[in-house]
Design a protein around this nucleic acid. Structure first.
Lengths: 218, 218
DNA sequence: CTTTACAGACCGTTCGTTCTGTTTTTAAGC
DNA sequence: GCTTAAAAACAGAACGAACGGTCTGTAAAG
């Protein structure tokens, strides 16, 4: 009752005990079901009962690891954020310079935003707008993630705009644009139109966001 | 009990009867409260009880005009969509040619998307993703509105891209970008960053979307 | 023997919807 | 115009379902 330690302190380099492994596996299982529910049912319908059924675990298992619904969704968001940094930190195949901007944007769309996890993240962000308790749990992490994402871009690209932080500005715009596409889907009857929007947008950003040669990277 | 005729047939040019006026006023009052609730509480917390309290009307009044929650939100969406076409169809002050693109985008952001109605619309679009009943009520209207919005842009601007429908593609991208900003707010600590994103984006679109002289308009 | 990991019953609240009344407007017969 | 019956516009009680959170009990790990 004292404190529901959702994440054990792993700073000391203990080997993970069997109990830790079991806990981590259970949490991962619950979070995976949470992502599916958020994507397919939305935040409001992502209830304990739904996740319980989808994950095939008991009610007690969920409430033990995540005392409130907001805590569960927050944990889900952190999991998604951790995975979402992949494309930004990826280097081009020849590693001599960063990935071309068009390829970067295309992959960010196809593999991150336009996936079950990406759509789940949109649900969480929308919920953050009105659920103060959820936002309180996530605010710091979202800001940290944003800073990390911008720093990664600054390391590998430069912007052609006036401001010195133009590269991260352009990348913030790109993330924002791709996220919006999840909702624009409802306006168009032809899904291919979204791909055209991505392509046209990538063409615009491509002229502004220039890959830095590897030797110029800090 | 037969059919809850929410909208009376006004195709014939009768003068609106007192009862119609009263109905319309009540519906507007409920919808106004619905917009406020959607903006401040989100779709999930926009309940009959909340709207009832905010609008100061009885439960029966709401259920009489809107038999289900989805019907109420759908009516709210139609109201918002009707208002949202304003900036697109507006002409420049001198009327010799359409409004400059930068001014158009700035106004679309400040007066449409980044307003209580704009944020409410984002909530509705997100809800459409997972609420099939709501989406069924709105799908056709959303597609029609999309076509109307694109047609308005095509009438007053031309795109500099390869495709003949480049203008409407660029405008779809702009709408999508501005909508996403409502959520990007949660990532940044400084709200002014959103304004910078709008400005940078407007600068990009400005080079691609060219106002047509009035004489060239159909 | 204590603590953690789970299991599942339980509870007060709130939800959307349905329903039965009451008042106001409309339409019809005269 | 006046009377009157039907219909529409509300008002508000009632209901079952489902929600999040809590609480007690059991097995496994430390």
């Amino acid at each position: 009752m004292e404190k529901p330690v959702t994440w054990r302190n792993m700073s000391d380099n203990d080997k993970p005990t069997p109990q830790d492994q079991r806990s981590k596996a259970m949490q991962a299982r619950i979070i995976r079901a949470s992502i599916t529910c958020l994507d397919r049912l939305g935040y409001a319908e992502t209830t304990f009962a739904r996740i319980q059924a989808k994950a095939g675990v008991s009610r007690g298992a969920i409430t033990h690891h995540f005392p409130t619904r907001q805590a569960l969704v927050a944990a889900t968001a952190m999991e998604l954020l951790a995975k979402a940094l992949g494309p930004v930190e990826r280097r081009a195949a020849n590693a001599d310079q960063p990935e071309p901007v068009r390829a970067l944007i295309t992959r960010a769309w196809g593999q991150v935003v336009n996936s079950a996890g990406g759509r789940a993240m949109v649900e969480i962000l929308v919920a953050c707008r009105t659920d103060k308790e959820l936002y309180h749990l996530l605010e710091q992490r979202l800001h940290d993630w944003d800073a990390q994402s911008r720093a990664s871009i600054n390391r590998a690209y430069r912007g052609s705009g006036a401001d010195p932080d133009d590269a991260e500005l352009l990348w913030s715009m790109t993330r924002n644009f791709l996220r919006g596409l999840v909702l624009h889907d409802k306006f168009v009857s032809d899904p291919a139109y979204l791909a055209r929007m991505v392509d046209r947008f990538a063409g615009l950003i491509e002229t502004q966001l220039i890959p830095l040669p590897a030797k110029d990277m800090p």
